[in-house]
Design a protein around this nucleic acid. Structure first.
Lengths: 178, 178
DNA sequence: TAGAAGCAACTAACTAGTTGGTTGACACGC
DNA sequence: GCGTGTCAACCAACTAGTTAGTTGCTTCTA
């Protein structure tokens, strides 16, 4: 039987969960390893044993969250308003991811994008381009431009507290109108 | 004649300038008062004499930068694409403001908006509403929604390195198309 | 019983903020 | 033109608390 008291994966999971809360709330520089350890209910030495450093924990955390987001919101090139709306909803449900990504971008710029994310993005651009070639989608924008615009619209809540899913969908509908 | 060596306003100015660089690069939690003082070429006690605290310096700094931005980019309700484009250009010229604002929003939420900014925003909403009533602007969105969308579009560079002024203008043109 | 999991206690470095005293500019009387 | 009292501007050095990261030892499980 699997140990419940001493379980490496369970401990890592608890640290990742506690780190998510902490980093989302305070950012990378503002996060405190002692608070993370306390929230996870284990010693902070575990952070260094399993993730090497505070930044190591953050990177792994971000990667997992981005993967989860990519998995849970697949692109629908022939329904970009719906895609933007679903992204918007995901961010509303888990605002931590948006905050994590924002802090990461502010501290690292665009250069340090996890390869998994870049790869997924390339696939999405291709999907958009395909839909454009098939005439299902406006050719008014390059595929990359269009995807950038749609993704940007989905984070409208970053700019205003008045953002709603309906507004995001409506805006994207107008962006791609023929 | 005014002293050049001991000049309160000049020292405050140097601290504000040094703080702008520091806070834009490292955020509020990541900024170091010793570095700010060193960059400004004066003692860090001056920060506490003139601004009360690290946060005090940040708040004053942000207010000044926002005022400057509001002054330098007036809204043109009958040319929203141009307005978004000019905002975009301003952010490109002074990326620090966007970073400052982003850090501030991440650490304080939407609640703590400087009154000057809120007031200027209300004026802009009214200007948009007026243009809508005069039939110069689409009535497809509420005035507030529309302004939120346009302002959000202008920070496209926050989402993608591929952002250009032309793209921002084009997107806004489509948003407000009849 | 070997080895992995876990932690209390520690360290060395750093950090925001303070303090007591110094320095330069200038007004004023002579 | 010159001493001089005053005060704002300024700073080196300090404090008290915090921080990321480490280590040597204990505990649990297969």
């Amino acid at each position: 039987m699997r140990s419940v008291v001493r379980d490496k994966e369970a401990t890592k999971g608890k640290l990742l969960e506690a780190g998510l809360d902490e980093f989302a709330e305070y950012g990378i520089a503002g996060a405190r390893v002692d608070r993370i350890a306390a929230k996870a209910g284990c010693n902070k030495a575990m952070i260094y044993a399993y993730f090497g450093s505070k930044e190591g924990l953050f990177e792994e955390l971000l990667k997992i969250q981005i993967d989860r987001m990519i998995q849970s919101v697949p692109i629908t090139p022939d329904d970009l308003p719906g895609y933007a709306g679903r992204l918007f909803d995901s961010y509303q449900e888990q605002p931590q991811i948006l905050r994590l990504a924002a802090y990461h971008r502010l501290e690292n710029g665009f250069d340090v994008v996890p390869e998994a994310e870049a790869e997924a993005y390339r696939h999405k651009v291709e999907a958009v381009a395909k839909a454009q070639m098939e005439g299902k989608l406006t050719a008014a924008f390059d595929a990359l431009e269009l995807l950038d615009l749609v993704v940007h619209m989905s984070i409208l809540a970053f700019s205003t507290p008045n953002a709603t899913r309906a507004l995001v969908e409506k805006a994207v509908r107008r962006l791609i109108a023929e």
